[in-house]
Nucleic acid binder design. Sequence first.
RNA 1: GGUCUCGUGGCCGAGUGGCUUAGGCACCGGUCUGCAAAACCGGUUACAGCGGUUCGAAUCCGCUCGAGACCUCCA
Length: 488
Amino acid sequence: MDEKLKGLKIYNTLSGSKEPFEPIHKNAVGMYVCGPTLYSEPHMGNMRTFINFDLVYRYLLHIGYNVKYVRNITDAGHITNSAGQQEDSIGKAAKLEQLQPLEIVYKYNVRFQNLQKIYNLLPPTIEPTATAHIQEQIEIIEKIIENGFAYVVNGSVYFDVQTYKKSFDYGALSGRKVEELENETRELNAQGEKRFFADFALWKKANENDMQIWRSPWGDGNPGWHIECTAMSTKYLGKTFDIHGGGLDLKFPHHEDEIAQSCGSSGKAPANFWMHANMLNVNGKKMSKSLGNFFLPQEIVEGSTALFDKAYSPNVLRFFMMQSHYRSTLDLTQEALNASEKGLARLTEAMEILNNLPTAKLSSFDTQALVRDFYAAMNDDFNAPILIAALFDAVKKINLVRDGQETITETDKALLISEMQGFVMDVLGLTLEGGQNDNRLKPVMDLVLELRQQARSNKDWGTSDLIRDGLKNAGITVKDGKDSTSWQ
RNA sequence: GGUCUCGUGGCCGAGUGGCUUAGGCACCGGUCUGCAAAACCGGUUACAGCGGUUCGAAUCCGCUCGAGACCUCCA
């Protein structure tokens, strides 16, 4: 087990390179991932990020780490854009739907929790909400003010980037330079109350039509966009923890500002490793609500989206996503999904075959080398596509053993079963569905195939094919092997 | 406009100096089969373009073309 722990390398956005992973506390990992803002239904692109970090979580657990995984739920929607205009996405949705803000959040959270089950995501250790941590946010803001990195204007509090950058490196994560930021903006900012264009709100004075308002030392208002993550990660994981993850689109400004808030309040950087998951594309473009090119995880499973002419199981979606690296963009097309569906079926089938594989006194191939490849792939920055390629190497061997072309010992078989199940089910998070394990169907199928076998023995091809075609219409494929017949 | 990333065979997608036939799907041929499917074996198609560095580049550098992300809420 220790050997497995040693090899893990993680690409750190901070350094732009793969680094050996060393947790702060031996064998224990603290991980924070930015969760969804629940003002509407999470779409498949959102799910990709959570599925990717589920993979990270699962592999860390698999190699023996004790992981505390914190993923927040944003239920306070106060947002200020660069032009100083205020827009509260949750409040906006609430007005549209004639509901209280927390009713909106509750409604979509129920769906989000359901999606997590459908897509087989392990529940995080805790999913804290922003509204339950207003006090913690206020305390951190007070600390930042005390340290001289924030100022109060007319009931609002802003982070003072110019003062901050004298002591810390603003832009360390995103590679942006404060001096250049101004030239980067496309439009002239209405600076308003801010001293400097790059300053960002920590606390915003309440508006008349705000639906969520809290009391604070600076008057009634609501927290800025970035402060909740700082408050909750600090509360549950400490001032500095191991891994901070999120979607690539959050890198700037959200994560950059989180770093500033942590350094500005505690003097310490929040995370040693920053991981960013890349976007899910549709026809080469990022899936997003504003572009309208999104579809919902539920729709794909139900086959109700107009983009595809059939339904896909959540397993297929997961497998499809695992076939690309988390740091690469991934293009979602029907053809690609069909390919994944077939590939997954082959993998699933091989796992069943493996369980019933005949054993021999000698193995004709190196099982341990196969297994080493599984770990090597995942240790290399969670390279799931390489892992899957290695799993298919094993699939080929399994089929060859079944066909009598290769042999495997009892010990090697047991190793392969446990490791393949571990990687396919525990690490990749796939559930092996279908197959011949339906208790009620199995005896019926045995009988039907026995009858067909009798017909075949009598060269009664008409009856034999009638049974085969009939089963096919019922969604069951008959496979004639050399000595026996199986079905799926 | 600024910053950054990417461009791999019919599709999806790994790989970052020589030795990966990556892998999956598709396609072609073969073995097996009563036929088919499945499985197995073999095969085809590739590194956007141009130039440079190097004994050697898909991999490093430069330019051109193309695509995308971020700079505003975003997974």
